[in-house]
Design a protein around this nucleic acid. Structure first.
Length: 373
DNA sequence: AAGTCGTGGCC
DNA sequence: TGGCCAAGACT
């Protein structure tokens, strides 16, 4: 529903009072639903435990929120468990070597997050005495904390009544208010609508309740409206097609790129390189590779770009989808002579220890070594 | 402000 | 099976 649906003329004060009452009811209904249906997640302090005095650890809240940026709960969970077991405090993480943290992040994607994670941990440890700022603005100033993550940590770890808006909340708002404007243009409007629902009671639970609702009931596909605690307020449901929200503008098609990856072995070892600190897969270990361009690489071109003089043999290719392009990686393999390496900075790594590679290179290495791992 | 930046699961 | 998309941030 919207204010415009009130047909009879009302004094402004009355309209505000009625609207406020609707919001109060909606908030209470969703929080009650959360008390009974909150997911049990390793970084979460459940409502019952909070009542018993347990408090969220800002380090764990922050770490989980960064890992969950554009990442599903099942994918992030094992990483969260490994990180917190290995680095129990922000100080432990801050003291770790870059390469160790990047390798631990391998496979999780969006590697700028790992670089910013370390930068943030070191800022907190070095400039804040190991204590996270407890305000949204203070958190927002840290590396890797944008509008969403700063609001989420402020609300969940520090009980600040912040407007926590992620993809789940955008979807819930789009359905609740039947917003026909498509994403991403609708983002400011959806955020404004979400702000109108934020109250002062249990800010952290409110944020998590809204996201749990989006993840388990108000799902992208096949929303479970019959189980929704706020279905009575939902204009999208009333309109009959809640699953069609949020609208989205059509995306541009993904281009295709081609590259060559070189698998140079020396006994049981494989030659790896460290990618430059910024850009795609920045700071990560990788197989040596050519540029990635629109045209396939001829055999001659592939040889000319090789990192070593060697007897290169074609061992197939792999395809990998990135967010904004698809990559075909032609694979060349050779048994290397130590003095044949023409590119500097080669890191010889055991074949059986390639877990620190991003998925695209792990896939290429496995395919190119053809079961020799 | 529009592009860049990963990955795996899903239907 | 291929396009869609998930607790976004940075430039």
């Amino acid at each position: 529903m919207s204010l415009g649906d009130c047909a009879a003329p009302m004094a402004l004060e009355v309209m505000i009072a009625v609207w406020g009452g609707v919001n109060t009811a909606l908030r209470a209904q969703l929080l009650a639903w959360y008390d009974a249906n909150a997911r049990d997640l390793p970084w979460r302090v459940r409502p019952a435990a909070q009542a018993a005095g347990a408090k969220a650890d800002p380090y764990r809240v922050w770490l989980s929120e960064v890992m969950l940026q554009q990442t599903t709960v099942p994918h992030a969970t094992p990483y969260f468990l490994r990180f917190t077991a290995r680095w129990p405090t922000v100080g432990d993480l801050a003291a770790e070597a870059d390469g160790e943290v990047m390798a631990a992040w391998a496979g999780l994607g969006y590697y700028a997050r790992a670089r910013n994670l370390l930068a943030c941990a070191r800022a907190v440890a070095g400039e804040h005495g190991g204590i996270f700022p407890d305000t949204e603005d203070g958190l927002r100033a840290l590396p890797g904390l944008g509008p969403y993550t700063a609001a989420a940590v402020a609300a969940i770890a520090f009980g600040r009544p912040a407007n926590v808006v992620d993809g789940n909340v955008e979807r819930v708002m789009a359905r609740l208010f039947a917003v026909d404007q498509p994403l991403p243009d609708a983002k400011p409007e959806l955020k404004r609508l979400a702000a109108g629902l934020v109250g002062n009671e249990r800010p952290g639970d409110w944020a998590q309740a809204l996201m749990d609702l989006g993840a388990t009931v108000c799902r992208p596909k096949q929303p479970q409206c019959d189980r929704c605690p706020v279905a009575a307020h939902c204009a999208g449901l009333a309109g009959g097609e809640p699953e069609t929200y949020p609208r989205r503008t059509a995306k541009a098609e993904r281009p295709h790129r081609h590259g060559v990856a070189y698998i140079l072995t020396r006994g049981s070892e494989v030659a790896l390189v460290r990618r430059p600190p910024k850009g795609l897969l920045g700071g990560m270990l990788a197989l040596p590779s050519s540029d990635w361009r629109a045209a396939r690489w001829s055999e001659t071109e592939a040889m000319a770009a090789a990192p070593a003089m060697a007897d290169w043999r074609s061992v197939g290719e792999v395809e990998h989808g990135f967010t904004h392009f698809t990559l075909t990686l032609q694979l060349l393999r050779a048994e290397g002579e130590a003095d044949g390496v023409t590119q500097g900075g080669v890191i010889w790594s055991p074949r059986r220890d390639l877990d620190g590679l991003p998925s695209v290179f792990l896939k290429a290495a496995k395919a190119g070594l053809n079961g020799l791992l």
